[in-house]
Design a binder for these strands. Structure first.
Lengths: 234, 234
DNA sequence: AAACTGCGTTGACAGCTGTCAACCCTCCTC
DNA sequence: GAGGAGGGTTGACAGCTGTCAACGCAGTTT
């Protein structure tokens, strides 16, 4: 495997973003290797987990093996939600990842925060459903690049400059499973964007956005905010 | 319009719910007409709502008008979740519907119930993402029929017999927007299922499942439960 | 009764994306 | 260094599904 951005770091000290709780890590924090399945859909689980570092994806399988990645999680996101004690989704690492289990006390204390996370996830999943159902292959790949840059760029102090370059944790196959495409289509789109000067990559996973604005346009915006307010029925 | 299950009620008074508060319903309950947009994505809203009767869909729009229905709600489901006071999704009625606003007191009292509803919705949305990204047109339509029969069949005392016949609240266009297809493809699939004896409908919205088992098979199951338990990382 | 509208169905055709295959490259093992 | 495995790219081709168009039908209006 090509060294991930954690390879060196995890050898020495905590890598990038030893954020959240750099020193004295809580006892429940844990480092997990690449391509490791943390939770199985339908499996029993009594904890919530927070991503401290790295990349984790949630997925679902059809009986014949078709896979759909439903969300890509970066630092800060929570996962491990259950219904009747059973995991809603399969969770696997795409990089060396650091995660933290949330204890019951924390759960209760952060109850509204957890509801907020649930709503955020709901919102993301809705947007992704729109992508899956109503966007073309090009729009899907462009959307993915914009989204992943937001999740995994080391948000530079100014915001913009650092956003241009980031590590694509997903393989072409992962991207395909996320976007409802095939590896070939993903590859073709990426290389077309490269030829057109929208993006650049030497290593397949080292991505740089050369023209974020055109890329966002190519992503086919979802309307972010409606100008008018809603019409509450009461 | 063909009579919905509410047609009688609406015949007495003006068809499209001018009725707001028919008989002695709880103060916050309300009847809304067909094809009425209750909430706009991005609009302000301070209440949660519960569907008491009828059919409500959540949707999202792209700038050019492409629409994606992200969930279909029947009796019992909650909607109106917000992030920063802004609606996550657009909500519109597909039938005359009865809804109920949940007050703050109820909200606090039902906090865990609400988290449960959020998780249920998350689960449904995930399954739908898998449908959108990884199922064929036939599988999508078959899945939709099975799903809608579960939501809208008047759950007979025995369960099964009543499940066979139900009112399809969605038009072909709604189905298309839900499944990420076109009306033509939806229509072709439905009529093929009809020719093959899987379903039957005289009126386009009066659906009957003649062979639920074959239909479920045609839907391409998502693996419901994993035998083994998950592997919690702590 | 005629015309109109919305919705649904059906056919012909096109094209986007999937399928199949070959090949390249890097990394790893032996 | 040879060989193998995994991931990525590219080309040829096919087919599923979208596009475009015509038509039917029911309900409503004029």
């Amino acid at each position: 495997m090509p060294e991930t951005q954690f390879a060196v770091a995890s050898a020495a000290a905590p890598p990038l973003a030893s954020l959240t709780r750099p020193a004295r890590l809580p006892a429940r924090s844990r480092v997990v290797g690449e391509n490791f399945t943390l939770l199985f859909e339908g499996g029993r689980n009594r904890s919530l987990f927070r991503v401290l570092d790295g990349c984790i994806v949630l997925s679902q399988l059809l009986d014949d093996g078709r896979r759909q990645i439903t969300d890509v999680l970066g630092p800060g996101r929570l996962f491990g939600f259950t219904i009747d004690g059973r995991n809603i989704a399969t969770a696997e690492t795409l990089s060396i990842a650091r995660i933290e289990a949330l204890g019951d006390a924390e759960l209760l204390a952060n109850n509204s925060a957890i509801a907020g996370e649930l709503k955020t996830t709901l919102h993301r999943l809705q947007a992704h459903a729109t992508l899956l159902g109503r966007k073309t292959a090009s729009e899907k790949v462009a959307s993915a690049l914009v989204e992943l840059s937001r999740i995994f760029s080391h948000s530079g102090r100014n915001g913009n400059p650092a956003r241009l370059s980031f590590h694509l944790h997903l393989t072409r196959a992962d991207l395909a499973d996320w976007l409802g495409l095939t590896v070939e289509t993903v590859s073709r789109c990426l290389n077309r964007f490269k030829r057109e000067g929208l993006i650049d990559f030497s290593h397949p996973k080292t991505m740089r956005l050369l023209d974020p604005e055109r890329l966002e346009a190519a992503a086919g915006f979802t309307r972010q905010r409606l100008a008018g307010s809603g019409r509450p029925p009461s």
